[in-house]
Write a protein that binds this DNA or RNA. Structure first.
Length: 527
DNA sequence: CTGGGGACGGGGCCC
DNA sequence: AGGGCCCCGTCCCCA
């Protein structure tokens, strides 16, 4: 019995020892694994820190490089920008390319908004039955080798997606407008192809901005593409501009290269600061207000509407800022036909505050260099601003004011196609497109004899008589000849003594309005 | 010499 | 595409 008790005691002791040993072993294993795990974590953290440091260095280096672009170089290189345009889907893919650097954009397989996945957006506030926008994909490979493709990370995607879904423009704050409501018979944008509409690439100091504009209609076959023209009355074209690119780099003063902030995955992605955007198209489409037709066609594209008016036009404008670009605006396209879809520099800063009809506060400045030789396309903010204000304060504003609300007033013709900048209305997308060149500064028509560029073909034709010396209009009174009919008409006042402009204060009459204006300013300015 | 006015050429823009 | 108008810059003339 005693032996039995001793035996049990020994067994219990052995069991305890074994159990302790097992626990110790387990603890050891856990400790070892934990140590390894901690080591791995530490290494990962170190790698992350190193990557962040590199990223930061890259940002700083890039900003520094862009800051150090000599202004004199820019001044001698007014055209550091190439506007690329491409129509897609012309006649189902035959492609009516309107010229320029078409090869710059290639079919896309990736999306800078969200990889390989179109964003479907519900407009939300509308009352119509269709509320879908599909953001097309962008090509990450189109820039060729060496090009670093930047795309948004998930956080940014969420941000953009949220903005779209709520109908809030991603950049600009909206200002309430009393502009009449736009026709809203159509609120559906369907994806037409998988080709890109948003591309942001960067290669050293080369940046590419692709902006897609869509011209929509309510036709039954939205994919039919054709030649742009004025749609037949009653057709339902709804030009739409999609703010498709938030990020852009340019020759800034270094003040614009917010390279993504806390977004380490977007080393080249730059927040487009509305007040600080040196280059690019900054537009907005207020989905909530249904301003679907604020933008028509592309900035300068020739547009594509077929005769039946059942067309969706999807075109792209790629703004390529090339640090090594030649000083000419469109070296490879301005020569020749004079109708090349040339280049232009788009730079919007500030606002269209001078125009009361502006429905949005797009921050628009432009470097509308009237002298392509001497004027810099560089970060001459004040210069560009002055020029832009010149434009607005002279022609545009005066005319917009004269039209009392621009777009929607005073014309029996239906002008449903509104300028997205000044809200002026036009009867067809083509006219809107041409008109909007006033704001965008796009001048597709280049003189082959000089560096002059024009927004309209007729202007180029007029200008070319400067070179040719052609003066087809002769005065019947004095044999004097003129290159333009309106000049002849003005000249005829010399013979007729016509002075239609009378001063309301002193009665003095003038042959031209400007003389009257100058006269009144100098002599009756206090009145 | 200076300033006002006229003439002309040119660009911009709309119709 | 062309016409027409507006605006501006420049040059010239003349008081």
């Amino acid at each position: 019995m005693a032996n039995c008790m001793v035996f049990h005691t020994q067994i219990a002791s052995i069991m305890e020892v074994l159990a302790n040993a097992a626990v110790a072993e387990i603890c050891k294993l856990v400790d070892d694994d934990y140590a390894v795990f901690r080591l791995e974590i530490t290494q990962s953290q170190k790698e992350n820190r190193a990557l962040r440091r590199k990223l930061l260095e890259l940002k700083v280096a890039r900003e520094r490089a862009e800051r150090t672009i000599p202004e004199r170089v820019l001044a001698s290189r007014p055209s550091s920008v190439k506007i690329l345009d491409r129509y897609r889907g012309m006649a189902r893919g035959e492609g009516h390319l309107t010229g320029g650097h078409r090869s710059f954009v290639k079919p896309a397989e990736h999306n800078t908004w969200r990889d390989d996945q179109p964003i479907t957006v519900d407009e939300g506030s509308g009352t119509s039955t269709q509320h879908v926008i599909v953001i097309e994909s962008a090509d990450a490979e189109s820039a060729g080798p060496g090009v670093k493709q930047e795309r948004s990370d998930g956080k940014d995607d969420l941000w953009r997606s949220r903005d779209i879904q709520t109908g809030v423009p991603p950049v600009i704050t909206e200002v309430p407008t009393t502009a009449p409501a736009q026709p809203r018979t159509q609120r559906s944008i369907t994806e037409v192809s998988g080709t890109p509409n948003v591309v942001l690439k960067s290669q050293t100091d080369t940046k590419t901005l692709t902006v897609t504009h869509r011209l929509l209609h309510t036709g039954s076959d939205p994919e039919r593409l054709g030649k742009l023209g004025c749609p037949a009355p009653g057709s339902e074209y709804l030009p739409v501009f999609l703010q498709s690119q938030r990020t852009v780099n340019s020759y800034g003063d270094g003040d614009v290269l917010d390279t993504g902030g806390d977004d380490p995955s977007c080393s080249y992605a730059t927040e487009m600061d509305s007040s600080n955007m040196p280059l690019g198209l900054e537009t907005q489409t207020d989905l909530s207000r249904g301003d679907w037709n604020q933008y028509s066609s592309s900035v300068y594209s020739e547009g594509c509407l077929d005769e039946k008016g059942e067309v969706i036009v999807i075109d792209e404008v790629t703004v390529k800022v090339e640090g090594d670009a030649p000083p000419t605006w469109n070296a490879d396209s301005h020569l020749g036909d004079g109708h090349s879809q040339g280049t232009s520099f788009l730079d919007y800063r500030g606002s269209l505050e001078t125009n009361p009809n502006v429905p949005t506060l797009s921050t628009l400045h432009t470097l509308r260099d009237r002298d392509p030789v001497s004027m810099s396309m560089g970060p001459s903010d004040s210069h560009g601003h002055v020029l832009f204000n010149q434009v607005l304060n002279s022609n545009d504003t005066a005319r917009a004011q004269a039209q009392e609300g621009g777009a929607t007033s005073g014309n029996s013709k239906e002008k449903r196609f509104l300028c997205m900048f000044c809200n002026k209305g036009f009867s067809c997308p083509k006219k809107v497109e041409i008109h909007q060149r006033v704001h965008t500064g796009v001048k597709p028509f280049n003189c082959t004899q000089c560096h002059m560029r024009f927004a309209q073909a007729g202007d180029l034709k007029k200008h070319q008589r400067v070179h040719t010396g052609e003066k087809p209009y002769s005065c019947t009174q004095c044999e004097k000849r003129f290159s333009r009919q309106d000049h002849l008409k003005m000249h005829l006042k010399v013979h007729t003594g016509e002075r239609p402009f009378a001063c309301t204060h002193c009665g003095k009459r003038f042959s031209e309005r400007r003389y009257l204006r100058i006269h009144q300013q100098k002599n009756h300015s206090t009145l």
